[in-house]
Design a protein around this nucleic acid. Structure first.
Length: 380
DNA sequence: AAGCTACGCAACCGCATCGTT
DNA sequence: GAACGATGCGGTTGCGTAGCT
């Protein structure tokens, strides 16, 4: 099965256009102001011509044969496709439509998307309304270019979960899965491809110099897993910092019986829950004792360092590390803690596989992970 | 200035999943 | 348990624009 590969040290791409001209400019819609999504960029007076023209053009690009076949199939099954009704508008949203949608959702809350268009007076299908709201009109959406931190987070999370954009988006407040997906497809994929090509060249040179030994599958296996793990740890350390704050506030504000729920809420993924568990805490303490850079865990103390995994190595227990000779007497304890952390991860993943079934392939299977954790044996 | 190309991103489509009857 | 409806998710499309020639 394919193993996660993380390419480290990628640079932030030049800032994306902050106010693409096919978006509505500030002031064009009071709805935008009301939900606060237009707080950046310059505007152009010529932007408002887009929707009507583009909407018509969009209608023209419909794959009519596909629509007919789908409609026929759906009709045969006694079910009407949500977007098949004639007269339902498609394509870019007009400011008036946005305002209707925002006003309605703010008054009634999101949900019941099927009925929403009728109730809100929109000539759109519910699906389109939901998409527009979740990807663009939601008040908590963060606009603007991705920060270096977000950039690195996406890389790390993608190494762990693959193309599970909603899972990645859940870890990046204010970012939508669609936005992350687009960012990945337009920026990161390209970068990774270039890095891979560069890496292939370097690897070929190393092979020529060092012989066939480095092409050992087990060695590659270890390298890939180690890289992915370090990236994940860097991410976890960042999440841990924010989650600790969230949990503390949640605990203070709620009764003890709801603490567990709050903690779970603050740590939605298993890696974060692991990291915040007693095992993770123990490991963090050990790591702190080992390196000054491990203020919040095995990763570097500063968020910026999260994007430079090589800098994490002194603090993060790892096999074949540059400073392995500097291991103190704490090393044995740390090794035990770290092994426990890995073991717990294996168990959690086994449970996850059991819950999600064989169709879920984003995570490596538990036996593969178990094998990997044995292979790493970081302090041995 | 005009034409061409590459890029970014909003929006669409179809399938998957979950909840209800 | 099966059928249906609603919603969520990931892949893909194509429009509009910036940059280049």
């Amino acid at each position: 099965m394919p193993l996660p590969v993380v390419v480290a040290g990628l640079q932030q791409q030049p800032a994306a256009r902050e106010n693409p001209s096919h978006l509505w400019p500030p002031g064009s819609s009071s709805a935008y102001k009301s939900v606060g999504i237009y707080g950046h960029g310059s505007s152009s007076a010529s932007l408002l011509v887009v929707p009507v023209v583009a909407a018509d053009a969009t209608e023209g690009r419909e794959r009519e044969s596909d629509r007919r076949s789908v409609a026929a199939a759906a009709a045969a099954m006694g079910r009407t496709p949500c977007c098949d009704s004639k007269g339902i508008k498609k394509g870019p949203w007009a400011p008036e439509e946005d305002k209707l949608l925002v006003d309605f959702v703010q008054a009634n809350g999101p949900g019941n998307w099927r009925m929403l268009p009728k109730l809100a007076g929109l000539n759109r299908c519910g699906k389109s309304c939901r998409l527009r709201w979740t990807n663009y009109l939601r008040p908590d959406i963060k606009r603007g270019p991705f920060t270096t931190e977000e950039h690195n987070s996406i890389l790390q999370l993608h190494a762990i979960v693959g193309n599970k954009w909603s899972m990645i988006a859940a870890q990046l407040p204010g970012r939508t899965d669609n936005e992350i997906k687009n960012y990945w497809n337009t920026h990161l994929k390209k970068q990774l491809r270039q890095e891979a090509l560069a890496g292939a060249d370097a690897a070929a040179q190393q092979l020529a110099a060092a012989g066939a030994a480095s092409s050992c599958p087990a060695a590659r296996h270890m390298t890939q897993w180690e890289t992915a793990r370090l990236e994940a740890e860097a991410r976890l350390s960042l999440l841990s910092s924010s989650a600790t704050t969230t949990i503390a506030s949640a605990t203070a504000a709620s009764s003890s019986s709801s603490t567990a729920a709050a903690e779970h809420e603050a740590a939605p993924d298993i890696f974060l829950r692991l990291w915040n568990s007693a095992v993770g805490e123990s490991f963090r303490c050990s790591a702190q004792g080992q390196g000054a850079a491990a203020a919040h865990g095995p990763a570097a103390a500063s968020p910026a360092a999260a994007g430079t995994p090589a800098a994490l190595r002194p603090a993060a227990p790892s096999g074949g590390g540059d400073d392995s000779s500097a291991a103190s007497t704490n090393g044995t304890e740390a090794a035990d803690d770290y092994q426990a952390f890995l073991d717990m991860a294996v168990e959690e993943l086994a449970l996850l596989h059991g819950r999600l079934g064989v169709s879920f392939s984003a995570f490596p299977t538990a036996d593969v992970l178990a094998e990997a954790s044995c292979l790493f044996a970081p302090f041995e």
